[in-house]
Amino acid sequence: MAKYIGLTFAALAGLGFLSQAQAEELCQGFGPQTPRDISQTAGLNTSSVSIAPSADKLNLCNIHTHTNAEHKGPGFTVFAGDGDHGGYKCNETADLTEAELAEPAGSAFHGVKPGDTIEVHWVHTSCNITPGEGLGSCLSDACANPQLRVEAQVFLVVNDPKALSFLDFDYDGNIVNGLHQAKSLPESTGTPVTFIGSTTGPSFTQSTCSPLQVTWSVHPQCAKLDINSLNAWAEKGNVFKEDHSHGIRQLVTAPELLAPISN
């Protein structure tokens, strides 16, 4: 081992002497982090955080997408690489037809093409807010520490009008029992896995953790989504000002950063 003295943590990890978690020098004192492999229920982070109410008891505050799945699940296990544009792809990616992979004539929603996987997040808050741009729309001066819940669905994007339409899952000013709600949420992709985690996105890693505590509800299977409906969503405009898909946060694997899953 003497010849390895002076190498960085990352270099030692590459040689197999340290785990990836050790190499990243894990952040300390934070609650459970996200994304994760939802097939794995183990976790050592038992910070006292209660599960948020169901989505129909909260206000929808934001809808956005990530290109490739941030989570790993039974239906999305194909590794797409490291970095901001890595993550996981739907298992059926290699089985799409030529027609499903055909590029549409125009594209108003950027960062996604037929054959891509996206993970859609419907973010909900206990705050009395109006849905809008970014996660800041989930907070307010009168409600800086809300309960947050994210309903997450992974889609395989195809050029097929018979596939699911994103417009069916939009907001469009929908109010139910006095609460802002999506028009609908996916229902045919398996029982969601519910757990405590954090916010995601490429600005966070295992060494740079998110301080916000979030209840996640992640569906385990992919569904096909028509790309033309994503373009229509961007073309007509939306209160979230979303016209492109975002980068991903790499999978959190360190048990110290994961909450145990009970369901």
Score class of each variant (00 low, 15 high):
Leu230Cys: 03
Ser203Leu: 08
Asp56Gly: 08
Leu230Asp: 06
Val193Cys: 11
His124Ser: 04
His124Lys: 06
Ile248Gln: 13
Asp116Pro: 09
Leu44Pro: 00
Asp84Trp: 06
Asn68Gln: 06
Gln20Glu: 07
Asp141Lys: 08
Asp84Gly: 11
Lys183Asp: 03
Pro146Ala: 01
Gly132Asn: 10
Lys113Arg: 13
Leu185Met: 03
Val154His: 09
Asp168Arg: 08
Lys3Gln: 01
Val78Phe: 02
Leu26Trp: 08
Arg36Glu: 11
Gly237Ser: 14
Glu103Thr: 11
Thr67Val: 15
Trp122Ile: 00
Phe155Ile: 07
Ala52Val: 12
Asp243Ala: 15
Leu251Arg: 14
Gln40Ser: 10
Thr8Ala: 11
Gln28Leu: 00
Ser39Lys: 11
Ala42His: 13
Ser140Pro: 12
Leu60Val: 13
Ser19Lys: 13
Thr77Phe: 00
Cys222Phe: 08
Gly86Pro: 08
Cys138Leu: 01
Gln213Tyr: 02
Thr125Ile: 08
Phe169Thr: 03
Glu187Trp: 10
Ser126Gln: 02
Glu151Ala: 09
Leu251Lys: 13
Asp160Ile: 04
Ile227Tyr: 03
Gln206Asn: 07
Thr208Ile: 07
His85Trp: 15
Gly173Ser: 13
Pro260Leu: 01
Ile196Ala: 05
Glu133Phe: 06
Pro255Thr: 05
His244Thr: 10
Phe79Glu: 06
Pro186Leu: 09
Ser39Ile: 06
Ala94Arg: 03
Phe9His: 15
Glu92Val: 03
Pro161Glu: 14
Phe195Val: 03
Ser47Trp: 04
Ile63Gly: 04
Asn177Phe: 09
Ala108Asn: 14
Asn231Arg: 02
Gly43Thr: 09
Val193Phe: 11
Leu15Ile: 08
Cys138Val: 00
Thr191Ile: 05
Gly173His: 09
Val112Glu: 08
Gly201Thr: 04
Ala108Phe: 13
Ser262Thr: 03
Ile63Pro: 14
Asp172Gly: 01
Ala10Lys: 15
Gln40Cys: 01
Thr253Asp: 07
Lys183Glu: 02
Asp116Leu: 04
Asp160Ser: 04
Leu96Gln: 10
Val158Glu: 07
Glu92Asp: 15
Thr8Asp: 02
Ile248Pro: 05
Gly29Val: 04
Lys89Gln: 12
Met1Pro: 12
Gly87Leu: 08
Thr199Leu: 07
Leu212Ser: 14
Asn159Gly: 08
Phe166Asn: 13
Trp216Gly: 01
Thr215His: 03
Thr46Pro: 00
Gly134His: 12
Ser165Glu: 13
Leu251Thr: 04
Thr130Trp: 14
Thr77Ala: 15
Gln206Arg: 14
Ile175Pro: 01
Thr8Gln: 03
Ile5Ala: 14
Phe169Asn: 00
Pro161Lys: 11
Asp226Val: 10
Ala99Tyr: 08
Asp84Ser: 15
Ala142Arg: 02
Gly237Trp: 10
Asp226His: 11
Asp160Met: 01
Gly16Val: 00
Gly134Ser: 14
Pro104Leu: 05
Gln250Leu: 02
Gly83Asn: 12
Asp170His: 04
Glu24Met: 13
Gly75Leu: 03
Lys72Gln: 15
Thr194Phe: 14
Ala182Asp: 00
Thr199Met: 06
Thr34His: 09
Ala254Asp: 12
Thr208His: 13
Glu235Thr: 05
Asp160Leu: 09
Thr215Asn: 06
Val218Leu: 07
Glu100Lys: 01
Gly75Arg: 05
Asn91Tyr: 05
Thr208Ala: 09
Glu119Arg: 05
Phe30Lys: 12
Phe76Leu: 08
Ile227Val: 09
Asp170Gly: 10
Asn263Ser: 11
Met1Ser: 01
Gln153Asp: 07
